[in-house]
Design a protein around this nucleic acid. Sequence first.
DNA 1: TGTGTTGTGGTACTAAAGTCGCAGAAAAGT
DNA 2: ACTTTTCTGCGACTTTAGTACCACAACACA
Lengths: 218, 218
Amino acid sequence: MTTLEELRTIPLFAMLDDRTLADTARYMEARTYRPGEYIAYEGERPAGVYFVQRGRVRLSRTAPDGREQVLAMVGAGENFNAVAIFDTHGTLTTARAMSAVHCLILPGDALITLIRRHPDLALAMLREMAGQLRNLAVLVEDLAFRSVRERLARELLREAREGAAELTHQELAERTGTVREIAGRALRQLAQEGLVRLERGRVVVLDPNGLARVGNGT
Amino acid sequence: MTTLEELRTIPLFAMLDDRTLADTARYMEARTYRPGEYIAYEGERPAGVYFVQRGRVRLSRTAPDGREQVLAMVGAGENFNAVAIFDTHGTLTTARAMSAVHCLILPGDALITLIRRHPDLALAMLREMAGQLRNLAVLVEDLAFRSVRERLARELLREAREGAAELTHQELAERTGTVREIAGRALRQLAQEGLVRLERGRVVVLDPNGLARVGNGT
DNA sequence: TGTGTTGTGGTACTAAAGTCGCAGAAAAGT
DNA sequence: ACTTTTCTGCGACTTTAGTACCACAACACA
C-alpha cells in the first residue's frame, strides 16, 4: 500500500487520474535495498515491475567466464524488469543496487489487470519500453562502432555529476564493454592529456569539451 | 483497407475479436517494396508501424564513416518502427527490404487510438516490444563477450534455411559487427575446418553441430 | 561479346584489445 | 596496530581486429 503522492513522483503515473492511481496503489509493495545488494537475478521468475524511488540500480548480463556487461543504469522515477512481465522468458537482466535503493514493486498480473482497465497506463508503459529500446540501440551502436577510449569518454560525461564521476576502473570497464586493465590504461592516457584527474574511486573531469571531442571520434 | 483474414495472419492481431479487427483494418495501408529498396530512414518522421506480411526487412544503424550495424531482421508476421511511435524522437533504425516485401502500415495516431479502445491490443504490443528488447539485449551480449568467429557461427546457424545461408560476406559482416575482410577470413577458416562450404552469395552449412560448438565459445 | 559491377581470395601491415603477473597504496574491518 | 580487502599502476606479451591493396572470377546486361 502506497500514498498517491508517492506514486505521482513517478512519471509513468504522473498523468493518471486519482481513481486509476488509487487502483494502482493498492497492489504496490515497497522495498528497500542496501548498496551492493542484488535485487533480481538473470533468468529467475520475475516478482514484478520495479519502480525506483531513490538510488541507482545497475542492470547487467553476465558471461559464462564472469565478465559483466552493464545494459543500463536506472535512477529515480524510472522502472525496470517490465520485459519479463510481458514476454514469459524470465528476468532478462541482473539488477543490483549501487546505492541505498527504495523501490515500489508492482506484481506482473496486477500490472496487466491495470493496463486492461486504464489505457493511458498502457500508452505510458509503451513509451517507457520504447525509450529503453532506444537506449539499448545506442549501446549496440557504441559497442559496434566506437573504440574503448571513445566509449569511456562518453560514459564519464554521462556519469559526471558536479565535475566528477564516482566509479572504479572495474565498474567503468563493465559499463563500456571491456576489462579493468584496458579501462585503466585508457584512463591514464586521458589523465596524461589533461582531460581528467584520477583519484581513488572517482574520476574528476577537468575538460568536458575535450572529453566530448574524444567521445565523438576526434 | 484490408481484409480480416490478412490481419489474422499477424500474431499481434490473431487473438483480437472481429470488431476490434475490423476497427484496425480500416486504418491499414498496404505497400510493397522491391528487393534492396529502403523503407524508412534513421531519424525521419515515422509513417507508422510496419507489419511485414511477406519478405524480410533489415533494420540497421549507420556510423558516420559508413559502417553499418544490423540490429534485427524482421520477417513475416513481425513488425517494426513501433519505437518511433511511442517515444517522439523519430525513426530509430533504417529499414531496408532484403527481398520482395509486402507491408501493412498503421499510422501512429491510429495505433494509439486503437490501443486506447482495445486493451488486448496494448498488451500484445507490449509483448512485441518486450521481445524486441530481449533480442537487442542478446545482441549487446554477443558484441561485448564474443569474438567475430563466434558471432559469425551463430549468425550462420540463425540464417541457415535447409542447410544454406544466402548472404554475402559484406552482409554477414554488417550483421556481426565487423568488416568484410574479417568476415571473409573467418569464413575461410571455418571452411578449412570443414564446417561450411563457401559459394558465391551463399554459405552452405556442412556441420551444424560443429558450428554450434564454435558459437558457444569452444 | 564485350563491359561494368559485384563478390571473393589473399597478403602485408598496423593498431587495438585482451592476458598475465605482480606490487604497492588506500580504505575497511578487527 | 594489525590484517584483509579493494583499488590502482604498470610492464611484457599474445591475440584479435581492422586497414590498405590488388587481382580475379562470376554474373548481369547491353
